[in-house]
Write a protein that binds this DNA or RNA. Sequence first.
DNA 1: GTAGATATCTGACTAAAGTCAGATATATGA
DNA 2: TCATATATCTGACTTTAGTCAGATATCTAC
Lengths: 284, 284
Amino acid sequence: MRKFNMSYVRRVGALEDSFLGSGLPYGTARILYEIGLGAGTVQELRIRLGGLDSGYVSRMLRTLETKGYVTVKPDPADGRRRLVELTEDGLKQWDDLERRSEERAHQLLDPLTPRQRDRLNEALATADLLVRAATITIEQVDPRDPMAQEAMGHYFAEIGDRFGFTVGDEGFGDDPSLRPPHGAFFVAASDGAPVACGGVREFDGTGEIKRMWVDPAWRGAGLGSRLLRHLEAEALRLGHTVVRLDTRDVLSEAIGVYERAGYERIDRYNDNPHATHFFRKELG
Amino acid sequence: MRKFNMSYVRRVGALEDSFLGSGLPYGTARILYEIGLGAGTVQELRIRLGGLDSGYVSRMLRTLETKGYVTVKPDPADGRRRLVELTEDGLKQWDDLERRSEERAHQLLDPLTPRQRDRLNEALATADLLVRAATITIEQVDPRDPMAQEAMGHYFAEIGDRFGFTVGDEGFGDDPSLRPPHGAFFVAASDGAPVACGGVREFDGTGEIKRMWVDPAWRGAGLGSRLLRHLEAEALRLGHTVVRLDTRDVLSEAIGVYERAGYERIDRYNDNPHATHFFRKELG
DNA sequence: GTAGATATCTGACTAAAGTCAGATATATGA
DNA sequence: TCATATATCTGACTTTAGTCAGATATCTAC
C-alpha cells in the first residue's frame, strides 16, 4: 500500500494540478470544488475539507465572494451559521475545473489499451471500496441522534414496517432500552453518512440485538460482521453472556451474517409478530 | 479514476502526514526519504523528486546537513557533482519515518479481514502496474546516449551476444545507421530507468527494425506493441513503406508481438548468423 | 588553451498555507 | 434574564514551498 502511494502520487498527483490553471490557488479551488459538490453551511464545508481552520476558510470564502463565484448569506434556521452557494459564474468555474480534470485523466490513460483501461478502473473501484470500508467508523450514539434516526429510517423502510414508530413521535420509536445504562446504540458512518446501525438491550434476563441494518451498497463487505462483533462486545460489557435476536426472512443477508458469526437457531422467544427467525449465541 | 483520487486522497492522504511528526517539513522529509532509498548525486535526487529547483534542493540539503542527517561531498568522477548520503543519525531518522508510515498503514487496514487486505493489495498492485505503464514515455535518443547504452546492454546480455559490441569500443556498437538522417533509436523509460528500446534503420532499400528489447518485468503489458507502433511510424517518416526485422527464437515474447502486429514470416534476407526468424510488414 | 556547457550554491524574493487570539453576533439552557 | 456555548469573521503572524538571477567551480569539445 505504501509503495502504491509513493508511486501513484508521483504520477497521478499531478491530476490535482489541474485545480491550478484556473487562476485560483489550490486551497481556494478545493473549496470552490467542494461547494459545487453540494452547497451548505460554512461548517459543513470545513468538516468535509477535513477540519480546516475557521479563519482560513472564512478568508478564502471572502476571496471567492469578491470574485463573484459564491454567495454567502445567513442561515434562516440559525443566524450564527452562514450558507454558501455557487453563483452562475462560480458554476462556470466549477465546470471548468471538472472539464480540465477529466481531460487530464483521459490524457494520462491514453497510452493504455481499452482492456487495460477497464482493468485499471476495476482495480481502482475495488481499492476504493475496500479503503472506504476500512475507514468506516463505528460510534455509540443516542438513538435519538439524527444519524441514528436516519439509519433506523432506512431499517424500518426496508423491512416495510410502517409501525416502527409510534404515531405522534417525531422520530422512530425512541426505545429507552437502547440507551445506557442497560442498552446502547451504534451507528457506522462513512463520509458522515450512516451506512449501518444496530443496538443492544436487555430482554428477559439476556442481551438482545435489535435494529441491525447495513446499507445494501455495503453488504458483502464484512461490515455486518464487524458491527455484530461490536454489539456482542457491548453486550458482554453490559454483563450478558448470552445474546438473542430475532429477524425476518426478508433480511436474507443478515441471516447469513448471524450464521457465520456462530449464532444458532432457536425457537421463538418473544411475541414479535413480524419475526420469522430466532437466534442465540453464547459470548465470552 | 478521478472519483478514486478524491476519495483515496481524503482517506489515505494522511499517510503522508506521517512524514510530519518527524520535526521536518514535508519537503525536507521527502528528500531525506529519497536519499535513504538510494544515495547518489544531487542531480539524481532532483530528478527522482520530479524536477525540483536546484536552489530549493540545495537549501534543503544544507538544512539536513546542519542537522547531521546527511553528508555531502564532491563526486570523484566529476568535481561539479556532489554525492549525498545519510549519516548514522540520518539513517535513524529514516527508519523512524519508515516505521511511522508502516504503522499508520497497518492501523488503517486493521478493520479489514485478511481476505479483504489481500484483495486490496492485489487491486493496488494492478493499479500501480497500469499507471506505471501509462506513464512510460518513449523518446528518441542518440544510440550513444547513456540510457540507450544501458538498454542495449540488457538487450545484448539477454540474447547472449557477447559480440554485440566491437572490442575497443567504450559501449555497444555505435551503429551510425541507427542515427539520423536515415535511422533513429528510441528508449522507453519509467522513473528514469530504461524499460524498453528499439531502433529503425535503412537496409537494402527498406526499413529495418533493430535491437528491440522490453524489460522482462514489463512484458505482457502492451509495451512491446506500443514501441513497435512507434518504430513503424518512424520508418514511415523516413520514407519506407516496408519494414523487415530478424529475431531469434530465444525472444519468444517478441515473436508473439510481431505476429500480433501483423508481421508475416519471410525467408532469410540477411546473413546475421544468430537470427532464426525473419519478418516483414507493409506500412501505411 | 579557450569558449561554452554543466552542477551546485547563495541571496533575494513571492505566494500559498496555516495558526492563533480575540471580536461579534446569535442561540441555548437554567 | 443571564451565563455560556457556538459559528463566523478579522487581524497579525509564521512557516513552507517554490522561483529567479547570478556566482563559482568544474568539465568537454574544438
